[in-house]
Simulated assay, not measured.
Amino acid sequence: MNYVELDSYSRKWIFTHASMPVEATDLEQIKPFTQARSAQIWREHISSQSPDADHFEKDDWAHDQKIWSEAIDWQHAWDSDDIDLPPEVMEFINWEDNTTVFFCYEKYNVIETKWGVFKRNWKNFLFFDDGPILIGRKKSQALWFQSNGTFKCAKRS
């Protein structure tokens, strides 16, 4: 089995929090991977060496600071009553809503969902903002969220 039931997921509360509950139809599409499958996704798409974004090695694609954009604020949009992602995200990513995405918190904590689900519920995903990276299956664009309320965009090879 590749997934953990959402009810058993250690961070389930970020999707069921009373202040920002996620619709039931979206909850069904938020699929945390098991630790083993998370590690495999992380190794294949993020890093074969580093356990999290704070420890990228020189051989990791994300370590190359030249590929990343300047830092862009996401905190202001997160704090607002508006549910939309910052416009810079939407200018950089034009994926179909049914595109499979991986929200990678760290090596043993990766969630699979659809781009449309992420767009509607991005604030929930960012309750934990300690360096997660969002990538799309078979897509080159990546977003790297920082705990200082900014994110960077990159095209990965």
Results as ranks from 00 to 15, higher is better:
76 H>W: 11
66 K>F: 08
79 D>M: 09
83 I>M: 13
32 P>D: 03
144 W>K: 12
148 N>D: 15
136 G>I: 04
126 L>Y: 03
141 Q>I: 00
16 T>K: 04
39 A>Q: 10
118 F>W: 03
96 E>T: 08
134 L>P: 07
139 K>F: 04
93 I>G: 14
90 M>Q: 06
7 D>S: 14
73 D>N: 04
143 L>E: 10
4 V>I: 14
14 I>W: 06
15 F>V: 02
72 I>L: 15
127 F>A: 01
122 W>M: 03
87 P>M: 09
28 E>A: 15
76 H>F: 06
76 H>E: 08
109 N>A: 10
90 M>G: 00
116 G>F: 14
117 V>I: 11
76 H>V: 09
44 E>D: 13
42 W>V: 08
73 D>Y: 01
30 I>K: 14
136 G>W: 04
119 K>A: 14
57 E>G: 02
98 N>D: 12
147 S>N: 10
19 S>L: 04
106 E>L: 06
23 E>H: 12
122 W>H: 00
40 Q>T: 13
17 H>K: 10
53 A>Y: 08
46 I>F: 05
93 I>C: 14
44 E>I: 02
134 L>K: 05
6 L>T: 03
87 P>N: 08
22 V>M: 11
82 D>Y: 09
141 Q>D: 09
22 V>S: 05
72 I>E: 06
48 S>K: 11
138 K>C: 00
14 I>P: 03
157 S>V: 08
45 H>L: 10
145 F>C: 08
148 N>Q: 13
65 Q>D: 11
89 V>M: 10
119 K>V: 12
16 T>Y: 07
71 A>M: 02
86 P>D: 05
59 D>N: 13
40 Q>H: 12
55 H>R: 15
47 S>M: 03
123 K>W: 00
77 A>T: 14
6 L>A: 08
74 W>V: 11
154 A>S: 13
18 A>M: 06
94 N>D: 10
128 F>M: 00
112 E>T: 07
94 N>W: 07
19 S>K: 01
50 S>C: 13
72 I>R: 15
35 Q>Y: 02
60 D>H: 09
90 M>Y: 07
19 S>G: 01
75 Q>F: 06
62 A>T: 05
67 I>F: 07
81 D>A: 11
19 S>E: 10
147 S>G: 07
105 Y>K: 11
68 W>S: 01
37 R>P: 00
20 M>L: 06
82 D>T: 04
105 Y>A: 06
52 D>S: 15
71 A>S: 10
102 F>A: 00
138 K>V: 00
27 L>S: 03
38 S>G: 03
65 Q>A: 09
14 I>E: 11
68 W>M: 05
101 V>G: 01
4 V>R: 04
62 A>K: 05
142 A>P: 00
133 I>N: 02
21 P>R: 12
117 V>W: 06
146 Q>H: 12
66 K>Q: 10
24 A>E: 14
140 S>R: 14
132 P>G: 06
41 I>N: 15
